[in-house]
Design a protein around this nucleic acid. Structure first.
Lengths: 140, 140
DNA sequence: CTACGACTTAAAGTACGCTTTAAGTCAAGC
DNA sequence: GCTTGACTTAAAGCGTACTTTAAGTCGTAG
């Protein structure tokens, strides 16, 4: 019998079988062909699962990932809708990249400063609050 | 009466009063002083809330944020533990930055490619799977 | 024939981060 | 005195993304 079982796919992709069934249920994966009631997968499923996992790790919701994936199906009409989503997501990703970089700064500066409370630490707050600082007694 | 009510803090910080009570409940904020049973806050709460929100937006869990914040309280002994957490989190943040950048690439390349299914798209997968590609017929 | 392991389904359970609800308290304005 | 609005509490509810459970099916090994 050709194709992989759900267990084999799960092992190769490094995710739980239950997650694969869940993805099928919510439409992230097309309903798998059944042989004697059991799911059988072609190798292409692995690429699809990699995209699903990347999207998840990048903070996409299931609904967003579904739109993203079905936007690629060759006969889907509302490609414009998909493009809008992608554009929107790009902006979100850029915002998120910024926030992560900020938190990175906060963490790094926390290694250097001697402020008793982080909310007084100018170094940590510098990129966050571009207003005039109260000029207290920071020990950064 | 000095200090702000929970409603005022919420309005200024741009978060719901219920969230502030929740933060106090789970230890992200110290128990606020009560006047006639109502919480009263000094201006410092706003800085603390900014940190809490930044941490949340950067993907920190409540537990991590609590460790992060209490690690700053001057008198807490296990600064080493806190340093370990921060180092660990920095690595996580760098990994996350990478994933976001990857998803950004996938999205951007999706605007250009003509692949019917994204898992066949070399452009999209290039940074993900550094192995030899099957050399199909990509239209990127 | 039977036992085993891997699979199937639907439904319930879980963790996180809050929000909502219910029932009550308090100070101020009429 | 009474109403109003903002507050208090504990407890329940919610959305997301799965996992776990229960009860059953299937193919192979012994």
């Amino acid at each position: 019998m050709s194709g992989m079982s759900i267990g084999e796919v799960a092992r190769r992709a490094g995710i739980a079988p239950s997650a694969i069934r869940y993805y099928e249920q919510v439409g992230l994966l097309p309903p798998a062909a059944r042989h004697n009631g059991r799911r059988r997968y072609a190798a292409a499923i692995l690429g699809r699962l990699r995209i699903v996992q990347l999207a998840r790790d990048a903070g996409f919701t299931i609904a967003e990932t579904r739109t993203f994936l079905t936007g690629f199906s060759a006969g889907t009409p509302p490609v414009a809708r998909w493009r809008a989503l992608a554009t929107h997501k790009l902006a979100q990703i850029d915002a998120q990249l910024l926030r992560f970089a900020q938190m990175r700064q906060v963490l790094e500066s926390s290694f250097r400063c001697r402020c008793p409370r982080i909310e007084d630490c100018e170094q940590a707050m510098a990129r966050q609050t571009p207003r005039t600082r109260p000029a207290g007694s920071p020990r950064c």
